[in-house]
Design a protein around this nucleic acid. Structure first.
Length: 109
DNA sequence: CAAATGACTTGAT
DNA sequence: GATCAAGCCATTT
């Protein structure tokens, strides 16, 4: 669990996401140097769900759709959290996605 | 051990 | 611009 560079970085970046902002799996993967391993980011999130408290609700796919919402406890927990941060979510889709989109490769750089 | 799956992305048609 | 196909890597069956 020490050299989980990929997973650890995912957790770190996920925790670095500013309040009221969201990012995509690909963006994180790209920031980690594995742009094409976006799936692993999702996998890391799935694992993190049982390891650490990572704001996975701030991580969505590149369409701004809450694809991972089904993996949360309830059914509307993810949406509730996002709305609680000022993000407008309608039908599992983030509104003004571009506005709340936070790209680590650009903003965190 | 090989095949299938998964919280995705990109590129081609 | 939308849809289809393939790529990626780790975990599971």
């Amino acid at each position: 669990m020490e050299n989980d560079n990929f997973f650890e970085k995912v957790y770190k970046v996920a925790k670095l996401i500013p309040y009221g902002r969201v990012t995509s799996y690909g963006a994180i993967a790209k920031y980690l140097g594995a742009a094409k391993s976006a799936r692993m980011v999702g996998w890391a999130m799935n694992a993190s769900h049982n390891m650490e408290e990572v704001p996975a609700h701030r991580v969505v796919n590149r369409k701004g759709l809450l694809t991972g919402k089904h993996h949360f406890d309830g059914t509307n927990l993810m949406q509730q959290l996002l709305e609680s941060e000022g993000i407008k979510v309608v039908d599992y889709q983030i509104q003004d996605f571009q506005k709340v989109y936070w790209d680590p490769t650009i903003e965190l750089l």
